[in-house]
Design a protein around this nucleic acid. Structure first.
Lengths: 203, 203
DNA sequence: TTTCTGACTTTTTAAATTAATTAGTCAAAT
DNA sequence: ATTTGACTAATTAATTTAAAAAGTCAGAAA
């Protein structure tokens, strides 16, 4: 890894800490520079602007997010268990990066920026991809009905997102999320997953 | 119906028109009075303040909302069809009264007002009640598994609300809802309802 | 030559001030 | 008992001002 890459890594790390704690809007470039004992101007030597930095941090998180979800599904042989574990991973990430409000509308991040749109579209596409792949395995297994796999995968994710947003948006009036909120999301998600899986079972 | 009640009805009617069209915040008491060719002071003779008027309109809508949903379920003998029709009623209301943003967070209405909370809590309770009653019929029929009925009813509603909010909140960037948005909600809701029903079917 | 910085300018956001609108009241009239 | 014009009080919107943050650059340090 080149020296310049190393420096960028350090910056990304420092930025991530602040972003995930305080959100993007409440984090200034000066603060990040100070954390690293460097000048703000140096920061701008490694990243052309704040957006690029945010985007880079976002990419890292989403790559990790996708990877963890893939792993969980690939290592699961129990259809329902796998989807519940997937849900747990998603909720874990949501909790960890809650302050960044990635892709939930009330975002710090300028979601209208086409670069962010691209990132989120890519996320969505990949999610549908690996969930589809997972479902396909169990269809071929004969454990799951022959269904429109892509549509079902999409629907599954939509339902998880729906429960997430509904809970955060409607119940969570207190700006900061509580443990209880996430527990609630987890329980509800698992319940619907159970029924969902039963609904897909081959009779 | 007494004269005073008649006047109140007229006012409620005029208020509803404005509210559902422009939202509560963008409707002034003067406008409502003008629509009725009466003075604002007269309005205040019949309603103590704007909140009371809004609350009264809200009550009417929610009563109607509950009633229509009940009817649909009571007159259905096909489990899945009934729930899909229920969904259609809900989406219809959501479309009609979208500008009022009833109970979706970004509300015009001061949802922290305990009187509104009461109204929405009551709605929720009644919804769980009639969906539970509906499910119970089919459990007793033997067409649906023996399950935790109340929890399942609640979950069902949560899923519909989730899909609704997720679509409106994430996809609908354009303040005003499009027909396409509601079509999307309808399609997704119906898909998940199908799987949901299959998941609850007795084998 | 590559990396870094202090001092700077520009842009954005927040706070304070002012103006306009709206909610709500009331004495008097119908 | 009901209605209203003329009023005040409270909220909201627009404008201005001040502060903070983003972003630049000539030149120093490695």
């Amino acid at each position: 890894m080149s020296l310049i890459d190393q420096k960028q890594e350090q910056i990304l790390e420092a930025a991530l800490k602040r972003f995930s704690h305080f959100g993007v809007a409440k984090t200034t470039m000066t603060e990040i520079a100070d954390d690293l004992l460097m000048s703000k101007a140096s920061l701008y030597y490694y990243f052309p602007d704040k957006t690029a930095l945010v985007l880079s941090v976002g990419e890292n998180i989403l790559t990790d997010f996708i990877e963890k979800q893939k792993q969980v599904l690939e290592s699961s042989n129990d259809f329902e268990r796998g989807l519940k574990d997937l849900s747990a991973v998603r909720i874990g990430f949501g909790y960890k990066y809650f302050m960044m409000h990635i892709g939930d509308g009330q975002s710090d991040i300028n979601t209208s920026d086409p670069k962010f749109k691209l990132l989120l579209d890519d996320l969505k596409q990949k999610e549908i991809e690996f969930v589809s792949k997972y479902i396909k395995r169990f269809v071929e297994n004969g454990l799951v009905k022959k269904i429109e796999i892509q549509e079902t995968a999409q629907l599954f994710i939509d339902v998880l997102v729906g429960i997430w947003i509904a809970e955060v948006h409607v119940r969570n009036k207190s700006l900061f999320p509580s443990e209880a909120l996430f527990d609630g999301i987890k329980i509800k998600s698992e319940r619907i997953i159970s029924i969902f899986c039963d609904g897909l079972k081959r009779n």
